[in-house]
């Protein structure tokens, strides 16, 4: 069934039409054309489709589109504000924390969320927070360093 939902998407209030059986991932990529959110496994294992819903990381392949009615959604496209990168994005560049880039948005958004969760962001804490997202290229070490360093500079 087609229905209208209201969301605040990357800071902009929008009304969008969704089918009941669409996932949030499908809505973002195929209907709203926000291709920065990636599609990896469709069963919550790889986490590369992670976005922030009401400022909480969620794997968008496991969320139904109608569920986000009334929610605030932040995707990678909405992170840089007025042409300047978010601190977490800068840190990823400085630490060479990306390779093929397909999982990068998910790690960046989760890192961004973690930075707002208060202190104690050490390597162990970061590893735990990103255990839900797979990266096959980097070995995670530079990603962890990028997030820890961004937290330290905050």
């Amino acid at each position: 069934m087609l229905r209208s939902i209201k969301v605040v998407l990357n800071g902009v209030e929008r009304t969008v039409d969704v089918e009941d059986h669409w996932t949030l991932l499908w809505l973002l990529r195929e209907k709203l054309k926000l291709k920065g959110t990636k599609h990896g496994c469709d069963r919550g294992d790889c986490g590369i489709c992670t976005v922030l819903v009401n400022n909480t990381p969620v794997k968008s392949c496991l969320v139904l589109a109608p569920e986000v009615n009334g929610a605030e959604i932040l995707t990678i496209e909405g992170l840089a504000k007025e042409g300047s990168l978010a601190p977490i994005q800068k840190s990823f560049i400085e630490h060479s924390a990306l390779q093929c880039g397909i999982c990068t948005a998910a790690f960046v958004l989760t890192g961004h969320w973690l930075l707002q969760q208060g202190d104690g962001v050490d390597r162990k804490r970061v590893a735990e927070a990103i255990d839900g997202i797979l990266c096959r290229c980097t070995g995670y070490r530079q990603i962890i360093e990028a997030i820890v360093d961004a937290a330290r500079k905050k």
């Binding site: 920065g36 959110t37 995707t75 496209e77 992170l79 990168l85 994005q89 560049i93 990306l98």
Partner: peptide, 8 residues
Amino acid sequence: SYEKILGV
């Protein structure tokens, strides 16, 4: 880096 970090 920039394209990948911006999701574009």
